[in-house]
Amino acid sequence: MAILINENTKVIVQGITGKVGSRQTRLMLDYGTKIVAGVTPGKGGEEIYGVPVYDSVKEAKEEHRIDASVVFVPARFVKDTCFEAIDAGIKLIVLVTEHTPVYDAMQIKAYAKTNRTIVIGPTTPGIISPSEKIKIGILPGNMFCPGNVGLISRSGTLTYEIAANFCEGGIGQSTAVGMGADPVVCTNLIDLLKLFDEDGQTRVVAIVGEVGGTEEEIAAQFIKEKMSKPVVAYIAGKSVPPGKRMGHAGAIVERGRGSAESKMRALREAKVKVAEMPENIVQLVKEALREI
């Protein structure tokens, strides 16, 4: 078991003929992901690594069963691309593209909700489930290993590092999800916590948060009141100066909100153990597993 995806998930790649799209298709196929089709308007009929390309999601849907889509199109086309997938009835969209306009993200989030579609991102590195041999997105497969820790992260490369630290410490992941670090993300931290809490494979959940927004604070309330599985966390950005945008569009401490201290305080109040350094989260997970 895993959350969101499993070994039978059939995936299409929107933007498959682009530089990033085609390269990442190769890497996903190598990992074991079942990619059934790609979509690039105007490139219908071509093939990328044996994957047939269609002009529209609708045409791909006529030929294949599709459970999920991964989006690599440039930011200005993201809204239309997601709407197309939602209208075609796809229920999971992994939106990798960076710099999506915030207003567009808000509209995608609202439209997805109305149509009961889950959109992960924007700016997500994706989802990976090592025991199911599937990854959707850009996460490097060799940094992850199968196990029973659910990993939720706001960032990309820091997730890889923590996953590698986990694997070296003998701790694998049930599923790792990058939720993205824009001011508006389409799936909130709390939604992912709920999924992990219900997942049979997951025993402990690790959150890798960062400065900006109030996702961790809201999640802390949920953990305190509803969550049955233990949660541990690391928050990046303790030394971030206020008012500066730290690479991620959402990573900014402004107007008295979003500081690392505020997040760590809220999580600790919810009895979540918070690591001082990324690698220390491994020890916290080990302790949590012992205590179950």
């Binding site: 960032s155 960062e210 950005g237 303790k238 971030v240 690479g247 350094m277």
Partner: peptide, 25 residues
């Protein structure tokens, strides 16, 4: 650093002993 999260975490860790001159992602 490549990646904003990794960049911030690196900055935090350097800060334990010295002062970073910059954040760069």
């Amino acid at each position: 650093c490549s990646g904003a999260g990794l960049g911030m975490a690196t900055m935090d860790m350097v800060r334990r002993k010295a002062k970073p001159a910059n954040f760069l992602e």
